[in-house]
Simulated assay, not measured.
Amino acid sequence: MTALTDMLAGPLCAFAFCWRLERRDGVTLGLTSHDRPITMNGLTYRPAPGLVPGALLRGGDGTAELTDVRGALSSAAITQDDLDAGRWDGATLLLHLTDWARPGELWLELARGTLGSVEQQGESYSVALRSHIGAMLDRPVTPVTSPTCRAQLGDRACRVDLRPLRMVVVIEDVADDAVTCAGLGPGAYPFGNLRWLDGANAGLVQTIIDQDDARLFLSEPPPFPVATGSRALLTQGCDKRLATCAARFANAANFRGEPHLPGMDLLTRYPGS
């Protein structure tokens, strides 16, 4: 805090907010409240005077919590189409304070977290911010028992190699939430996902809820029109049952569930029921 104390003691303060936004698809955006670009750590922060923080709460242990972020829709930065398509859902946000007159001398992190729900009012928007520390404190101390697996297919707990379970396909037809593509395995993709590689939907990931031969049914229609011949990356899914884990993936040793644990219906059972 020495640099901040020295600058506050000076005759003039030239502070500016710097926002670093990183989407889940890797796209990173730098914005600043200053009227000129500021470059720090290889990222250029472009002027966005309309982007302002809400209440910033800082605890005695050094943790900080930012309630929300407000700004104006811009075709060059955060567009309405991208917000509606969910491209910014779950994006990581870092808020820093710097001195635009002497960039680099002060780079104070004020808050960090992930973007939550977006509320739009005319040409402006408000984004709720979930702090990383708050999310960690909300996690259960011990796993909750369940008859189905708590792990996600391919994650650190599951340990299934996803590489042979992925395939790039060419889209032949799209009708509402149904996508048709050839070369699919029988019933392998329900509960999996589809990642668009081409077109306006590129980078978006959608959940597959059902499959009928060459047709996949998504949880919702694609946000933007899909041209015939577009490519997509398919990842197979798992219904999280022990039988599927053992027979299809040969991974019963890593099953994260309790399929044989008696449930609440045990209290209502009686001889001969």
Rank of each mutant, 00 (worst) to 15 (best):
L218E: 02
W100L: 01
L153F: 04
A250L: 03
L267Q: 05
P53K: 12
T207W: 10
S117R: 14
A253V: 11
A85Y: 04
L94D: 12
T142S: 08
G122I: 06
D161G: 04
L216S: 04
L234P: 09
N201C: 09
E172P: 02
V205Q: 03
R24L: 15
L56R: 12
M1A: 14
L194D: 06
D265I: 09
C149W: 08
D6Y: 03
A188H: 09
A202P: 11
K240P: 02
P147A: 08
A3N: 09
G104T: 10
D68W: 08
P222R: 06
H132S: 11
T98G: 02
R130F: 10
A175Y: 04
M167I: 11
L56M: 12
S230V: 01
L204R: 11
W100T: 01
V160C: 08
G257Q: 07
P186Q: 14
L110W: 08
R166M: 14
A227G: 01
M40Q: 12
V27W: 05
L194E: 07
F255V: 05
T228Y: 00
D155N: 09
V179S: 03
H96V: 03
Q236V: 05
T244R: 02
W19R: 02
L266P: 00
E109P: 07
N251W: 09
D198G: 06
W19P: 04
L4E: 04
E22F: 00
L242P: 00
P221C: 08
R112K: 14
G192N: 03
V160A: 07
V168W: 02
S126H: 01
L93R: 04
L242G: 03
P221Y: 10
G134K: 11
T244K: 00
G272C: 12
T180R: 15
S273T: 04
V174D: 03
A14C: 12
D99L: 03
A111V: 08
D6P: 00
G59E: 14
E105K: 07
P140H: 12
V69M: 15
T5Q: 14
T44K: 02
L110Q: 11
P53L: 13
P225V: 13
V205Y: 00
H34P: 05
Y125H: 04
